[in-house]
Design a protein around this nucleic acid. Structure first.
Length: 143
DNA sequence: TAGGCCATCTGGTCCT
DNA sequence: AGGACCAGATGGCCTA
């Protein structure tokens, strides 16, 4: 865990000192701020725990370092879309389970799944975006 | 040194 | 009133 910023304290910031008429009110305000900061830290820690859980179930082929939060979300979205496509195809072709699994296993292998491979250049990223066909801005995902 | 990623603080808003 | 959630600001760490 990263160390906290030394310039910031839990008892409130220098830039926004509470406009208090009494020491009592000042104390109340700073105590509430401190409690809110602690809650926020805890909330963000929970969020990070969730991200860690997600990283564990999402493919990370070729990635020697952990995915960023943004990359994790992108990967999760792509992975779900890919799995969903497999299920949809299986229903359509009505394949027996074992045979179907063998057939589809290749679909989630790195070499057949370029979008999940490590990218090293902006060109690669462009390719990934075009081949993966998810759109964050439009909130639209194509299988 | 610039840029990316992250943790933390903070004030605003909504909800209970 | 107080908690949850969110977004903006800020500064630290790391890497190319």
């Amino acid at each position: 865990m990263k160390s906290r910023r030394p310039s910031c304290t839990d008892s409130g910031s220098e830039s926004s000192e509470p406009d208090s008429k009494s020491p009592e009110k000042y104390e109340t305000v700073t105590r509430r701020r401190s409690a809110a900061n602690a809650r926020e830290r805890k909330r963000m820690q929970g969020l990070n725990t969730a991200f860690d859980s997600l990283r564990k179930v999402v493919p990370q082929w070729g990635q020697d370092k952990q995915l960023s939060k943004y990359e994790t979300l992108q990967m999760a979205l792509s992975y779900i879309v890919a799995l969903n496509r497999i299920l949809t195809d299986a229903r359509r072709h009505n394949a027996p389970h074992r045979q179907w699994l063998d057939l589809q296993f290749d679909c989630v292998q790195p070499e057949n799944y370029p979008c999940l491979l490590r990218y090293d250049s902006p060109t690669d990223q462009d390719y990934i975006h075009s081949s993966f066909s998810y759109q964050f801005d439009g909130h639209q995902v194509h299988a």
